[in-house]
């Protein structure tokens, strides 16, 4: 009688191909300043910001089951703190990094009371917080209500240097966030996150500390969304509160994650790339463009709730971004 032997690996050929493709994409983005110049760098930063937002919103909604309408709280507030810290004399790039830390701290404080709210209450409750932050930022004499202010401290750097540095910082942050998500999902906490994603009540019943796990994801999402806000400010260089706290950002996040695939890192990245393409081609249509985005998001929610990756993923041999285990059984 032969004894079955089990080999357990964490990644297969699909994962190797995906990781290679992602690495190539990262290198391609990194050399954009030399090839496409300032304008190309600006667009690349936009793409990276969308990827960051999609990854973070997906982590919240897809993994922790927390739908937030008000992630603009972290997006807008990080832009504001970047302005404030730069105004106080900090180098704008250091101000961006500091704002990410402030975003994480704000996320932790917010999580203390917001995570006690249930589904829909949490969703709009976050919107209330975002609105509150928006109103308070408007009161700051430096911002002058909706008039806004420019990040003039950035002018210390030449235009070419500045745009290249912002792009590389955005790339570094995005890679760091993807790496952090991978490490988190492959850790013990990751098992808890996956359990909560699949069945929250079941996870609780086998002793998963749901609140602690959700808090970890929430703080990570706060930090990542804050990074996106600070980078968007650095790239746009103009801070108008309405443009950063506006609800359209939430619509973008919803679109990217629902179309790409809720609960999958791959889905978030695909959704962001798709959104970037749609925005490039149709962004000029204004309100009709937003009507279209909303309609597509609703259709996906109703007809294909697992998004594009929910269709592609199962058709591939193994996971593209390896978070689970592959167990192979062979007889000796």
């Amino acid at each position: 009688m032969s004894t079955p032997s089990l080999t357990i690996t964490r990644s297969g050929p699909t994962a190797h191909v995906t990781m290679t493709l992602l690495a190539i994409a990262a290198v391609a983005i990194a050399v954009i300043p030399f090839v496409l110049g300032v304008a190309g760098s600006g667009r690349a930063v936009a793409l990276l910001v969308y990827i960051l937002l999609a990854l973070m919103w997906n982590a919240l909604a897809g993994f922790a089951g927390l739908v937030s309408i008000g992630q603009t709280l972290f997006f807008g507030f990080a832009a504001y703190t970047t302005i404030r810290l730069s105004d106080a004399g900090l180098d704008p790039f250091l101000a961006i990094l500091a704002s990410i830390g402030i975003g994480a701290a704000l996320g932790w404080v917010t999580s203390l009371f917001m995570l006690s709210l249930k589904d829909g209450e949490f969703a709009i409750g976050m919107w209330v917080l975002s609105s509150l932050a928006h109103l308070c930022v408007n009161l700051d004499p430096l911002i002058q209500g909706e008039t806004g202010i420019s990040l003039i401290q950035m002018n210390a750097y030449a235009l070419e240097t500045r745009s290249a540095l912002i792009l590389w910082l955005a790339l570094a942050v995005t890679i760091a966030v993807i790496a952090a998500m991978l490490l988190l999902l492959r850790s013990r906490t990751g098992a808890a996150i996956t359990a909560i994603r699949d069945d929250e009540l079941g996870a609780r019943s086998i002793g998963v500390d749901v609140l602690r796990t959700k808090r970890i994801v929430f703080v990570l999402a706060a930090a990542g969304t804050a990074a996106a806000g600070a980078l968007w400010l650095a790239s746009a260089s103009n801070f108008q509160p309405r443009a950063f706290f506006g609800v359209q950002w939430t619509a973008y996040m919803l679109f990217m994650v629902l179309v790409g695939g809720l609960g999958r890192i791959e889905g978030a990245i695909i959704g962001a790339v798709l959104f970037f393409a749609i925005e490039t081609w149709f962004g000029a249509y204004g309100a009709w463009y937003l009507v279209g985005l909303g309609a597509i998001a609703v259709l996906f929610a109703l007809l294909l709730p697992k998004g594009l990756w929910g269709w592609i993923g199962p058709r591939l041999p193994g996971e593209a971004i390896p978070t689970g285990y592959i167990i192979e059984k062979s007889d000796i």
């Binding site: 909604a61 919803l254 985005l293």
Partner: peptide
């Protein structure tokens, strides 16, 4: 699940 009604009604409000 609980998430979809929130997402769907938010999408409708944007539309």
């Amino acid at each position: 699940g609980e998430l979809l009604p929130i997402l769907a009604t938010f999408g409708i409000s944007i539309i």
